[in-house]
Simulated assay, not measured.
Amino acid sequence: MAGMVILSSIITQDAYFYSFATPEIIQQLSLSYMADFVGASMVLMWSPAYAVVFTIYFVLANLFFYSANSTMPLQDFLSDGGLLVLAGAVFSMAMVVFRYHSVKTMIISKIELIKNNDWMAVQNEIIEQKSAELQKSNNRLKEFAYIVSHDLKAPLRGVRNIASWIREDCSTTISEEGVMHLKLMDKQIHKMENLIIAILEYSKTGTAGVNKEWINLDDMIKDVIDMVEVDNRTRFSIHSHIPEIKGTKIVLSQVLQNLLSNSIKHNDKEIREVEIEITDGAENINFMVADNGPGIDPKDHVKIFDLFQTLRNDTTFESSGIGLPVAKKMIEDEGGNMWLESVPGKGARFYFSIPKEK
């Protein structure tokens, strides 16, 4: 506003003296007049509204003083210098507006940059905080898995010793079927010991640190079936033309054990039918576990993979709601994916894939 007042005062004075110009000196006065605009355009920054107001004032002031004081015809007055002065004023105002917009844009850009930098700093701080919390949570989870797995060894050794004592002390009285059951118990204890060792290793390193190994799929599936089948009411159908693959055995066995266990546990048929299919894809090894159970409503296909989510509210039904989420996470840590296809009344098909090892 101060610039507007000062420049208007100068223009008022210049317009007054310019109105007395004669043909002999009008061009010289015009150049002097324009110098004031050029000087103003070097320092002033106005919005377009200010520039328009000033231009209108400039024209009115010069017309007023011309009509009051000039003896030159209007046509001569304009052609000899008046139009030149007007053009200089308009050009100067254009420069003033341009500078205003340039500085405004620069200031806005700097403000936005400062805001973005502040936002990025806050986000980085949040990410660092969440990363630290996640690391602590992972460490606690690993410690928990290690402690639980370690503590399982002692009672398991106790069960093995008891089975051994029974076999030794009752060797003459125990039936042949009892001896077979004791051998089966010893076999299952050995598998459990191997599973605990694998869990300990997994808890310490995660899947990224577990060595890949060649896995005989037929043997692994047979071992998993032995772990989950308890009453001989399940018919297993296995379709696989891949003798072995390279991967993380603890992951594949645990995932298959979870899926087969669910297919048996949730099945409402007298004779349960479970199909296992393994196919060799272009980049992945694909697994499918299907059953003839009650099926799963499509609206629950996402929920079923959420931690602590169960689809049955029956209190007599035992389910922790962590099996499938953990299985899916283990597959995703291997670089694979897990999903299902199912409709109520037509069973369920669970799929998962893992990348081929090069």
Results as ranks from 00 to 15, higher is better:
Tyr16Cys: 04
Ile250Leu: 01
Phe308Ser: 04
Leu63Tyr: 09
Met338Asn: 06
Ala61Lys: 09
Ile189Pro: 04
Lys346Cys: 01
Ser30Asn: 02
Arg233Ile: 14
Glu201Ser: 13
Val228Ala: 03
Tyr18Gly: 08
Pro298Asn: 10
Arg233Val: 11
Tyr50Lys: 12
Arg99Phe: 00
Ala163Pro: 03
Pro355Asn: 08
Ile271Leu: 12
Leu182Thr: 09
Tyr33Met: 09
Pro344Gln: 10
Leu113Glu: 09
Phe236Gln: 12
Asp231Gln: 13
Lys212Trp: 01
Thr310Met: 04
Gly206Glu: 06
Phe20Val: 00
Asn284Val: 06
Asp14Ala: 13
Tyr146Lys: 09
Ser237Val: 15
Asp291Met: 13
Asn313His: 09
Asp268Pro: 00
His301Asp: 03
Val5Gln: 07
Val230Ile: 14
Tyr351Ser: 06
Leu217Val: 10
Glu275Arg: 15
Ile56Thr: 08
Phe54Met: 05
Glu112Asn: 15
Thr207Arg: 08
His150Trp: 05
Glu168Gln: 13
Asn211His: 12
Ile242Asp: 03
Leu63Thr: 14
Lys187Arg: 10
Met180Ser: 11
Val302Pro: 00
Val53Asn: 03
Tyr351Glu: 03
Leu141Phe: 14
Gly295His: 10
Ile197Ser: 07
Phe287Trp: 07
Asp223Pro: 01
Arg160Trp: 04
Ser30Leu: 02
Gln257Val: 00
Ile322Phe: 07
Ile285Gln: 01
Ser342Tyr: 04
Val122Tyr: 13
Ile225Arg: 12
Leu29Glu: 08
Ile215His: 10
Gly336Gln: 11
Val210Tyr: 08
Phe305Ala: 01
Thr22Phe: 01
Gly81Arg: 09
Ala132His: 10
Gln309Ala: 01
Arg235Tyr: 01
Phe17Ile: 14
Ala163Ile: 14
Phe144Met: 15
Ile56Val: 11
Gln129Asn: 06
Leu74Ala: 15
Lys328Asn: 07
Gln13Glu: 09
Asp268Phe: 02
Gly335Ala: 08
Val90Met: 11
Ala2His: 06
Met93Tyr: 03
Ile264Gln: 06
Ser67Val: 13
Ser19Phe: 11
Asn216Tyr: 10
Asp314Trp: 10
Leu84Ser: 10
Gly82Cys: 08
Met1Tyr: 02
Ile189Leu: 11
Asn313Phe: 06
Ala198Val: 01
Phe305Leu: 01
Met338Gln: 05
Ser109Val: 05
Gly206Pro: 05
Val122Trp: 09
Ile225Gly: 04
Lys329His: 06
Val148Asp: 10
Gln309Trp: 04
Val53Lys: 07
Glu270Lys: 15
Ser175Leu: 08
Lys212Val: 07
Ala198Phe: 00
Phe77Thr: 11
Trp214Glu: 02
Ile197Leu: 07
Glu201Trp: 02
Gly293Glu: 05
Ser47Gln: 02
Arg99Gly: 00
Lys269Val: 07
Ala198Arg: 08
